[in-house]
């Protein structure tokens, strides 16, 4: 339930928003309701209140009022920094924003999406869904580490967590988090692994338990223009080649989506299929058994054949 403290914070916000000139502390203590007690305790109260308002996104401007003596500071909240300004929004734009917010139903930032919607609704613009196609996007982020990681990325705080290695051992990692991005249904954290002093990629689902976020902010720099999806594409899916595959008629649908058919006979289509990772392409080819035959490149053809020989030998 709302308390005396909330009441004081609201009175302070209103007074600092309504004033056209900077108010001194003594003016604030004299006129704003809620500041009681001796000088020292009102002073402390005010400092805490300023921090608290900053935590909910309200910036109090401070200015020295006397250029010769900087002990007398003035305070105000600028209405432009306080209030929501996204330029003129049309009814269609408000409708799109609310569809975007619905993508979070039940997912990590669901609460933030809802409170953003309430603020948008408070602009008093009627949303216009009529001209929009039926859309229902969905974000799959159920990792409890998503929100702390985004905060750590934006505040540039080092994070520590326990990570499942490819050999299934839980390893302690300490990372400067650069970014979070999603590719092919998985979310990845990209950052500098401090023990290895190299930029690495971590799959969110492979982080065990809770991420620990260090307190100190701004403790590292990220290259200007760092683009997490660009990084993921050039590191996780870094090869780019075209394989020539024979795909049996009526089969291989998942590879056909990307394929370009060159020629056909009564049994197979000869297709060009782009790929980004040869190991995963070999896996996909093996999955299809004799419905897909590799023509080229040679290394993929040979690796497929040797894997098939291993399979027959190990399942005798």
């Amino acid at each position: 339930m709302a308390s005396r403290k909330s009441e004081r914070l609201i009175n302070l916000t209103m007074a600092l928003l309504a004033t056209r000139r900077y108010l001194t502390k003594s003016e604030i203590f004299r006129t704003v309701d809620g500041y009681f007690g001796d000088d020292e305790s009102t002073e402390r109260m005010f400092e805490r209140d300023k921090d608290d308002l900053r935590k909910i996104g309200i910036e109090i401007e401070v200015r020295s009022l006397d250029p010769l003596f900087d002990d007398e500071s003035g305070y105000r909240i600028h209405p432009d920094s306080y209030s929501l300004n996204l330029g003129d929004l049309s009814g269609v734009e408000v409708a799109i924003l609310s569809i975007a917010a619905q993508a979070w139903r039940g997912a990590a930032l669901g609460g933030s999406a809802q409170s953003a919607l309430v603020k948008l609704a408070s602009l008093g613009i009627d949303s216009d869904f009529d001209s929009l196609p039926a859309l229902s996007p969905k974000l799959h982020i159920d990792s409890s580490n998503f929100v702390p990681l985004t905060q750590a990325i934006m505040d540039r705080c080092v994070v520590a967590f326990s990570y499942i290695s490819s050999e299934l051992v839980a390893e302690e990692r300490k990372v400067e988090p650069f970014g979070l991005g999603s590719r092919r249904g998985n979310w990845y954290l990209v950052g500098r692994d401090l023990n290895r002093n190299a930029v690495r990629t971590f799959r969110l689902a492979r982080i065990l338990g809770e991420v620990e976020v260090a307190k100190s902010k701004g403790s590292f720099e990220v290259e200007v223009g760092f683009d997490v999806l660009g990084f993921l594409d050039s590191n996780l899916f870094d090869e780019s080649g075209i394989a020539l595959l024979k795909i049996r008629l009526g089969k291989g649908h998942s590879l056909r989506r990307l394929a370009n058919v060159i020629s056909s006979d009564h049994e197979f289509d000869l297709c060009e299929v782009p790929y980004t990772n040869s190991e995963s392409l070999v896996g996909q080819i093996l999955w299809h058994g004799d419905d897909i035959i590799v023509e080229s490149p040679l290394d993929i053809r040979e690796s497929t054949i040797s894997r098939l020989q291993d399979l027959t030998a190990s399942h005798v």
Partner: peptide, 27 residues
């Protein structure tokens, strides 16, 4: 004095941006 809605907090703006990116991929 308080009649205009507050500006979006960081998480609120981020939630909308990610939602819009998803929407953009899907239209």
């Amino acid at each position: 004095t308080l009649a205009r809605p507050r500006t979006l907090e960081r998480n609120e703006a981020l939630a909308l941006i990610l939602g819009l990116e998803t929407l953009l991929e899907e239209i």
